[in-house]
Simulated assay, not measured.
Amino acid sequence: MKRGSKVAKKYKVEIPAAALKETDFDPGDDLSLSVSHKQFVIRSAKVTDLIPQINIGFYTVPALLMMVIFFVYSRSLGVNQVALTGEDYSIANAGTLLGTISGIVIFVIAAIWTKVNQTGPTKELYWRNLPTIVIACGLILAFSFSAAFWLLGRLFMDASFDIYTSTVMIFMILAVVNYVMINLAMTLTTSIITNLLTIMIIGGMLFAMLTNSSRDWWKHNFSFLGTAEDSANFQFNVTLIFSGALMLTLVDYLFVNLQKNFKGRRILILRWLLYALSACIASIGLFPNDPQFHILHDRISMWLVYIILILIVALRWILPRVTKQFLTLSYTLGVVMGVEYIVFKLTDYLSLTAFELLEFGLAFSWLLLLLQNIENLANFGHNLFIVTVKDDSKK
């Protein structure tokens, strides 16, 4: 070795046996280590091991069956030219119906298969959680199809295709949807459920705003989207109902693991407050702001606000190992929400719709951060393990 050259230091990380059992790795396997955002990520050295291996027949065969159904039914109606979008028979309507049905069935089969065979994160899922997740995925599929075809209808107005081209398009759409749903079932985790909750609430509400019959809905209030006066009230209310149910599922999923590591009355209080919050979200959709439910709707909305304020104030005592940064952020958001309420009540600066949207945005953002903190605590000691980095050059 040349004089002046430096010997590269080596460090050793000892992996607990319990952690190794949670993987498919064996002692002596080659693993790759990468550094991402100042964190070590250890994974298989084979790129193919990082991607769920899905047999091509699992998603193409169901798509072929649905394609045949579409072709035969179109022929029975004597249809030779199919419109891209429209209220009558169209690729949009057929794709939405067949895609949603096919996607849900494929997702259920894949989720049950992975859970029974203990081959993916779905093994951590409880059977009681599956129905809500399936319904949420179905609604997200239906909303996604509707939004995508709504946009395509605006871009390609009056477009139509012959029966053979339309059939091929239906096959391609269904094959992609089936693949996505199988992949989702094989990689389903609490983080993905949180993402589904976010997509469902934001996507459902945006879709209701885009498709409602009254362009002046914002002059009334945010809850107007759920009333009988608006044509999009069904989408808006269903979004809230199943968002509340999905959040209930997520809280149930998280707290079973959380209570293995942290016990006591404080955890129970936090859990039941989040259950109550989920119930309020669902109840706002269940009891829209129509005349017969107006008083109940307003009271439930206020209960939701009170529960969030109680959570923020009591966070220091009911959330284990809460960080100073999260406490500071929570109190800051609580103060901002309080100031907005005072400004709305005492001045005409904020309209009712603007006030509701701002409060919803702040509350929902904080709720996602809270769920993320709970998820990290729930994984600690279950999917997270303490390791020590040792200097291997000193022998």
Rank of each mutant, 00 (worst) to 15 (best):
F355W: 14
G57Y: 15
I193A: 08
F207Q: 14
T119S: 14
N80D: 14
Q118L: 13
S243W: 01
C280S: 15
A147D: 13
D216W: 11
H220Y: 13
E356G: 08
V105S: 11
F58M: 07
H294F: 03
P52D: 03
K263G: 07
Q325R: 12
V108E: 03
H294S: 10
I284R: 06
T388N: 15
N379V: 02
T132D: 03
I15Y: 12
S213Q: 12
V105D: 07
L329V: 00
I307W: 09
T189D: 12
D158V: 06
A19W: 14
L151A: 14
T353L: 09
T249H: 09
P131K: 10
V79I: 07
F385Y: 15
N221T: 12
L273N: 09
S144A: 13
L367G: 01
G4P: 10
F224R: 01
F385P: 05
F236K: 11
L65I: 14
I163P: 05
V116K: 09
V68F: 15
H294Q: 07
V313K: 00
A110Y: 03
A110N: 06
D348K: 07
R265V: 01
Y11M: 02
I281R: 13
K115M: 10
T187Y: 00
E14S: 14
V41H: 15
Y89A: 00
L210W: 15
D162C: 07
L125V: 12
R3L: 05
I307P: 05
R316E: 07
F224T: 09
L248C: 03
G95D: 06
R271G: 03
I281M: 14
K2E: 09
F25V: 13
A92P: 01
F385G: 02
T100S: 10
E14D: 14
L65E: 00
Q325E: 12
I135K: 11
M200H: 06
F143T: 11
